[in-house]
């Protein structure tokens, strides 16, 4: 999966109209809340078969941190 494809998956998971960019602060994204974080956990499990904790997601400050979680699984 490419980074752009992952960003699109995250955008859809957040049910957001506007695109998201890596440099965006999560706090600035209206749709980002605890349910969105839970959704992302499920999404990563389904897409990459990796299980993250809410604590790990909670440490993310920017969209780039969410992308970095899956490291080399995106190109």
């Amino acid at each position: 999966m490419t980074k752009q494809e992952l960003l699109k998956e995250i955008k859809n998971a957040l049910q957001r109209d506007d695109d998201i960019a890596e440099d965006m602060e999560l706090e600035s994204i209206e749709e980002w809340d605890s349910l969105a974080a839970l959704t992302l956990l499920s999404l990563y499990d389904q897409l990459f078969s990796v299980t993250f904790t809410m604590a790990e997601i909670g440490k993310c400050r920017k969209v780039s941190d969410l992308v970095a979680l899956v490291g080399d699984k995106v190109s």
């Binding site: 998971a13 049910q15 839970l38 959704t39 499920s42 999404l43 389904q46």
Partner: peptide, 12 residues
């Protein structure tokens, strides 16, 4: 399994 509705995968 804790899966929000919006992330539901029907096969799973």
């Amino acid at each position: 399994e804790t899966v929000p509705l919006r992330a539901t995968n029907l096969s799973k």
